[in-house]
Design a protein around this nucleic acid. Sequence first.
DNA 1: TTTT
DNA 2: TTTT
Lengths: 174, 174, 174, 174
Amino acid sequence: MARGVNKVILIGNLGQDPDTRYTPNGNAVVNLNLATDESYKDRQTGQLVPKTEWHRIVLFGKVAEVAGQYLRKGSKVYIEGKLQTRKWQGQDGQDRYTTEVVVDINGQMQMLDSRGEGGMNQGAPAGRPQQSGNNAPAGQQSNNPPPQQSGGYSQPSQGSMPEPVDDFDDDIPF
Amino acid sequence: MARGVNKVILIGNLGQDPDTRYTPNGNAVVNLNLATDESYKDRQTGQLVPKTEWHRIVLFGKVAEVAGQYLRKGSKVYIEGKLQTRKWQGQDGQDRYTTEVVVDINGQMQMLDSRGEGGMNQGAPAGRPQQSGNNAPAGQQSNNPPPQQSGGYSQPSQGSMPEPVDDFDDDIPF
Amino acid sequence: MARGVNKVILIGNLGQDPDTRYTPNGNAVVNLNLATDESYKDRQTGQLVPKTEWHRIVLFGKVAEVAGQYLRKGSKVYIEGKLQTRKWQGQDGQDRYTTEVVVDINGQMQMLDSRGEGGMNQGAPAGRPQQSGNNAPAGQQSNNPPPQQSGGYSQPSQGSMPEPVDDFDDDIPF
Amino acid sequence: MARGVNKVILIGNLGQDPDTRYTPNGNAVVNLNLATDESYKDRQTGQLVPKTEWHRIVLFGKVAEVAGQYLRKGSKVYIEGKLQTRKWQGQDGQDRYTTEVVVDINGQMQMLDSRGEGGMNQGAPAGRPQQSGNNAPAGQQSNNPPPQQSGGYSQPSQGSMPEPVDDFDDDIPF
DNA sequence: TTTT
DNA sequence: TTTT
């Protein structure tokens, strides 16, 4: 299935709560904003300077469900996925490119906060529908420009959150 | 030095010859355009569809020297580096972001073409100065828009190719 | 499915042809002996000393089929799998341990020899049955001590096994 | 320096406190016993069966110092190293082989327990000399059979513990 | 823009 | 925007 290798491995913390959306088929698609920290020695001052790198993560399928339910702002997480750059149109009609780390059936997500502390403190989210309501407030997110969206999927027709059947794979465009 | 993990592993082929530049200190900085191939089964047709992902690679230091000298368009290569997104200004004054895989002293580059075939066919490049001349023709490359450049380093002041001393680390902005 | 991470990534060359066997169900199980090369600077002499590390690889399923058919002694290959140590009984009744890199449905194998050169020179093996005959000679292999076997699977259609060529395995020290 | 790739990435928990030793030169060498958990679906019963894999980790240099000082039984940790199999002689004079994950200057170790909970609860170890005394009690460890040793380095000549020179960074470099 |  |  692959004549190359395209692998990303990250450990970092979430900058915000996960952004959960659903495909028309009811499959979860979760966006994460992940910070990885590094520090390097400044050549001028000789001091250790912290440097944060931010990564856009997109999870699909089962791992997206878990991420959306259990991860929160501040959560520490291990991510294994692949690099993907997608093109979108800016408001000026010009092409823009956004690179994301895609975690699908071939990837992995591991929560690294032990025993519920860490970022999992806002009360345990219960069922899926609530999740959707809590994490993907339509009004707010739907104004986001393309770089905040992940292509072909949209949000659940709110209020009518249509029985999430798990026929995944039927609508993800890759 | 790092309180997180930020690792990328790629195996693919170069879309063009490497783009070699030099910092004012004479350190090589090489840009690669790397394709990784994957194929997935189309849900509609059931057919296997090939899909190519393109990656921007930036190498620094010793590994950059080697890449610039021995890699060519078509070369198969293993890359281990880290993700880095840098901001630049579009001609319209707006912010743009480009994500690259940075290979520095902590990364790795492995040529995977065996026995000189593959992309290594244009004759063995000799010394470093010539390399610079061959691979980083100033007039051509300097017109490249920001996404084609890697930030703070510029090209060798040609003709005066300043004694490539290996005092690396003195000018790389991270 | 996993509350940890256990990942091995190797690029190296095969020390011998693959050793293909079959489970009672007819599933391929392939053993590889993979060399990864490294060199380090000797502190005494200051010289660059080459050092080869040998790895035992066990492949299951589809990837095993491909490996058995297309890899040969000398082939360069990318392996992604997981570490697994299994216990077996020495002839003296004592416990022995062998660590292997297991490549199953979650792993990956990529052939890195381009255009059929490399180790792929003994003529293209054809169908699976023949493969079985050539690579998994029952009579000879079944005498191998435990470290040469990979646990619960046994050999194919015994009794009719034709010329067993691949009896290396006898001098590999693990 | 390397014409191959030999990389291991693990996330798991320590089965015991680290075993810290020192080379004659006073360099720390730390052994860890790391468990990675996985679960698989039993084909017979259809049940999810947990499975623990144990790994021998050997750390050298600075990362060894940190591991010896801050890791404890139960600690969750990220390990990046390389596979290495070393030969030793059993009491019966026969060759034995032990495979370890070696973490040296090219590797990485990340503690994943947040805020001092996790396994770091036996009181904060203070200076290095005490560490040595606490973690590498010569009398106890020296009875360990070869698989418990890592080759060329020995234990601190007791009583004469030679003032660990390696005053690299300022204690806590992360 | 690469490669098979 | 996270974390220590």
